[in-house]
Design a protein around this nucleic acid. Structure first.
Lengths: 160, 160
DNA sequence: ATTGAAAGGGAAGTGAT
DNA sequence: ATCACTTCCCTTTCAAT
């Protein structure tokens, strides 16, 4: 695993919230010179810790007023890996997770409305290997896109 | 709702994948001058279509090797809104959705391992109003952080 | 990791179509 | 509303210490 010191973590935390900060501004926040911050950021990019620079868009502004989680159970002779290409074609699918439990896949999807969700579900059902679909509609989203905080190796010691 | 033309959508699609593009580069991609792109981006920021500029971090690099979805059922006399402040304190919670169905809330959480997840679940259980927790562990993630594509108002016509 | 210098890009204003 | 151009200033980038 990659070693990150407190300053790397501080930099990552800042950039997860506002990636357009100048190196000077970042430097004064974490206590480093602009060039030093620059070096660290470039290293984090090279190591793949920073995967991409993106914008977060308001889904509603794009007309995507409905979010849903779609759980999929596969036929016994299919794997998630085989199904995946058939799912990628649907741009409404934002995430695809392989999961443990009753179902095999969990998708996060966004559509304009229930009608579009219905259409999407029918098309997903047509993908070979899919046995059952269970959809859960999101009524509202309280938190989303929170910055990831590095896992402390001793988070569990508070269990007693 | 905000009106977005084809060029706005093209700009948003590009920025969702790479937000550090120069206005010159963006302009040549969508067929506009740098200044025109600049104007549009600023407008999209002002309208709130662009919510934030962020980096996407590799969770594993931060030691977050476990992702899970935690479904919560509330006691009948509690609402999701009342519970939310009690959940925000846990930085391991990346998303909180209020949902329809058997459960009331669906959380996306990230921890370093199963032990840390166990500790988190116990602490969530201590939040007043929470009746039952059902956790689903993510085995692998095939897709995540896909760009949102504007919802076409006629997506459902393919249903027949 | 800091300093300093050079190159590039962003922001804002202008006038014109 | 877009374009082409110009200006200034900040930022990025890379060299050297």
């Amino acid at each position: 695993m990659i070693q990150l010191d407190a300053r790397d973590k501080a930099i990552l935390l800042e950039l997860q919230q506002e990636s357009r900060l100048s190196y000077a501004e970042m430097g004064s926040r974490v206590g480093l010179s602009p060039a030093a911050v620059h070096d660290r950021v470039k290293k984090l990019e090279r190591k793949g810790v920073i995967r991409a620079y993106k914008i977060q868009v308001d889904p509603e502004a794009l007309g995507l007023k409905l979010t849903a989680f779609v759980a999929i159970r596969l036929d016994n002779n299919f794997t998630g890996r085989e199904i995946q290409p058939g799912l990628e074609q649907f741009h409404q699918i934002e995430e695809v997770h392989s999961i443990a439990g009753e179902n095999d896949l969990l998708l996060k999807v966004r559509t304009s409305d229930t009608k579009a969700l219905e259409a999407l579900i029918y098309r997903i059902k047509a993908v070979p290997g899919i046995a059952r679909i269970t959809s859960t509609i999101v009524l509202s989203t309280a938190l989303e896109g929170r910055p990831l905080v590095p896992g402390e190796s001793d988070e569990s010691i508070e269990l007693r």
